[in-house]
Write a protein that binds this DNA or RNA. Structure first.
Length: 488
RNA sequence: GGGUCGUUAGCUCAGCCGGCAGAGCAGCGGGCUUUUAACCCGAAGGUCGUGGGUUCGAUCCCCACACGACCCA
C-alpha cells in the first residue's frame, strides 16, 4: 500500500472502530451554543476567577486542527475558520470509555464538546470537556498545519483546502463579499435598482468578444452566453427604470491569463440624465468608499508599489496617453500609413485589417496600459471602436467614453449612451461589415421607442477585488477559476 | 504567441560535479494530567510529473509532452 492510501486506510479504520463501538461518525445534529468565534468573543473579557465561580457551560463544535496529547489528558483545538477554541480532555473527567474516543480522532474531523469554561495557567480560554462527540469523520488527509497549501494550482482546484488552511485566502474572499456589499449599498443609496437580465441571449451584444454557444432543444434555438448585459439594461432604461444596475457573470470565449477568466463578474449600471463626466465623479466616489470600507485605506499595496486612489484622478485622452508613454510623435498618429508603420513597430498583428481607431487603441494597449498605476480615466475613444457610445458634439470621430486604468489594468469602461436609433443602426451595420456580426434590430426598436439621455458603466469586480486585496492574479480572487481538467 | 522557472513522501521543502533518496509536519507504536508549531523515544513511508534519448549508471544531462508560476509582446 502506498503512503497516501495508508493514511486513508488509517482514518477509515478509525471510522469502523467508532461504528463497532456503536458511535455514529456522522450524527444528524449537535446543538451548539454558538460558533467557536462567537463563544470566544462572548467570554473574551471573563477572567479566571469569574469563570471559576460562574461555572459557565458551553456546547461547541468545530474542525479539529491540532491535538496535544498528555497521556491521561489532551488538548484539542476546535476551529470555525474565523477563530479557534481549545478543549481540555481529561480521562478522570470524561471517564475511560469516552476518553478513549480520542484514539479514533484525526486532524480535519469535526468534533463537539460540552463542558465548563476555565482559563489555563497561560490564561487561555478553554473548555473542560465533560462530553466529547464525533460530528463528522474526515477520511482524507489534511495539508500540513504550518504552511497549508502553497501550490497555486492545487489551491484553486481544492479551494476548500486553501480556504481552511490559508487565512490569507479566506481574507480575500471575505473582502470580495464585502466589496460587493459596499457597491450595492452605495448604488441603492443613490436610487439604483438591482435587476437580473438574460445570460442566454440570441445575439451576443454589448461588447466585442467571442461568445460561448449553447442550444435550447425545445425551441431548437442557438443561444449565446452573454458577453455583457448592456443591451438589456438599456432596454430597462427605455422602460423607465432610470437608475438600474446588475452585478453578475458574463462569459467570453477567449484566453486565460492573470487578468482574464472566461467567466467573470461585472457591475453594470445605467443612469438616466447623466453623462460620462458624471460617471467619472461617481466612480471616484464609489471606489474610494469601497476601498476605505473594505481595505481600510485609499493607498493600496500593489506588488512593490502602491495604487493611490487620492482624488481627483487623472484624465487623459487616449492619443495623449500614447504620446506620453512612447517615443511616437503626433505625426506618427496622423495619416493612415504613418499609423500602420507605428503599429508594426510595436508588433501589432493584422495591421492592414484594423480600423484607424482600432490601431490607436492597440497602440495604447502596447505603450501605456501597463504603466498606468494610479487611477487614470482614458478618454476620447475613437467612434469606430465604440459602437454604443454617443459621439462628442465637437468631434464626431470621437465619443463621450472613458476607460479607467489602474494597477496597469483596465478596470472600467463607460460612456454616454448612444440613444439615436438611426445612428445606432448605422453603427451596428458598420460593425457587422467589419467583424461579421448582426444588427440587433430588437434593440434598435427599443431605442426607437425613446431612451432618455443616459450614461452607463461596467466595472470588473474580479479586478477590483484584486486591487483591494493586493492579488496579482485573477485566479486568486475567483473561488473556482476555470482550469484545464486533470486526468489522473 | 515568445521566453524563463517549477513539478521529489499525504503536506511544506532539501538533494553539491551523474554513483544506495533526505528533513520537518501529518500518520503508525510507546511514554507523558495545564499544553499550544506541546514534548521525549522508536519504527515506517518514494513510479523523483509523463514518455523517449545519452550513459556502465539519470531525481540530476538532452528532447518531447502534460500541468502550473512569472516575464515579454
Amino acid at each position: 500500500m502506498e503512503a497516501g492510501e495508508l493514511l486513508r486506510a488509517n482514518r477509515r479504520a478509525k471510522l469502523e472502530a467508532l461504528r463497532e463501538r456503536g458511535v455514529d461518525p456522522y450524527p444528524a445534529r449537535f446543538v451548539v451554543d454558538g460558533r467557536v468565534s462567537e463563544i470566544v468573543a462572548r467570554f473574551e473579557g471573563a477572567d479566571a476567577a469569574s469563570l471559576e465561580s460562574g461555572a459557565q457551560r458551553v456546547r461547541v463544535g468545530g474542525r479539529v486542527t491540532a491535538v496535544r496529547g498528555h497521556g491521561k489528558a489532551a488538548f484539542i483545538d476546535l476551529s470555525d475558520g474565523d477563530g479557534r477554541l481549545q478543549a481540555h480532555l481529561r480521562r478522570d473527567v470524561l471517564g475511560e470509555e469516552t476518553f478513549s474516543l480520542l484514539d479514533n480522532l484525526d486532524l480535519g474531523d469535526f468534533w463537539g464538546v460540552d463542558g465548563v469554561l476555565f482559563r489555563t495557567r497561560t490564561h487561555e480560554l478553554t473548555v473542560k470537556a465533560e462530553r466529547l462527540v464525533v460530528l463528522a469523520k474526515a477520511l482524507a488527509p489534511w495539508p500540513e498545519k504550518w504552511h497549508g497549501l502553497t501550490d497555486h494550482e492545487q489551491r484553486a482546484r481544492q479551494r476548500y483546502l486553501d480556504l481552511a488552511t490559508n487565512p490569507q485566502s479566506r481574507r480575500v474572499f471575505l473582502a470580495r463579499a464585502a466589496a460587493v456589499r459596499e457597491i450595492r449599498t452605495f448604488l441603492e443609496a443613490r436610487g439604483f435598482v438591482e435587476v437580473e437580465t438574460p445570460m442566454m441571449q440570441p445575439i451576443a451584444g454589448g461588447a466585442t468578444a467571442r461568445p460561448f454557444v449553447t442550444h435550447h432543444n425545445t425551441l431548437d434555438l442557438d443561444l449565446y452566453l452573454r458577453i455583457a448585459p448592456e443591451l438589456y439594461l438599456k432596454r430597462l432604461v427605455v422602460g423607465g427604470i432610470e437608475r438600474v444596475f446588475e452585478i453578475n457573470r458574463s462569459f467570453r470565449n477567449e484566453g486565460i491569463s492573470t487578468h482574464h477568466n472566461p467567466e467573470f463578474t461585472m457591475l453594470e449600471f445605467y443612469w438616466a440624465y447623466a453623462d460620462y463626466r458624471n460617471l467619472m465623479d461617481l466612480t471616484e466616489e464609489m471606489l474610494c468608499q469601497v476601498a476605505s470600507k473594505v481595505a481600510g485605506t485609499e493607498v493600496l499595496p500593489w506588488g512593490e508599489e502602491h495604487v493611490n486612489l487620492a482624488r481627483p484622478w487623472r484624465r487623459l485622452g487616449m492619443r495623449e496617453a500614447v504620446l506620453a508613454y512612447s517615443d511616437l510623435q503626433p505625426e506618427n498618429l496622423g495619416e493612415r500609413a504613418a499609423l500602420e508603420a507605428a503599429a508594426r513597430r510595436f508588433g501589432i498583428a493584422d495591421v492592414p485589417r484594423l480600423s484607424s481607431g482600432k490601431l490607436l487603441a492597440e497602440l495604447f494597449e502596447a505603450t501605456a496600459e501597463s504603466r498606468l498605476l494610479d487611477p487614470t480615466f482614458v478618454t476620447d475613444f475613437p467612434a469606430d471602436i465604440s459602437p454604443l457610445a454617443k459621439r462628442k458634439p465637437e468631434d464626431p470621430e470621437l465619443t463621450e467614453r472613458f476607460e479607467l486604468y489602474l494597477g496597469g489594468m483596465e478596470l472600467a469602461n463607460a460612456f454616454s449612451e448612444l440613444n439615436d436609433p438611426d445612428d445606432q443602426r448605422r453603427r451596428f451595420e458598420e460593425q457587422a461589415r467589419a467583424t461579421g456580426g448582426v444588427v440587433d434590430e430588437d434593440y434598435v426598436l427599443a431605442l426607437e421607442h425613446g431612451m432618455p439621455p443616459t450614461a452607463g458603466e461596467g466595472i470588473g469586480i474580479d479586478r477590483l477585488v484584486m486591487l483591494l486585496t493586493g492579488s496579482r492574479s485573477i485566479r486568486d480572487v475567483i473561488l473556482f477559476p476555470l482550469l484545464r481538467p486533470r486526468d489522473d
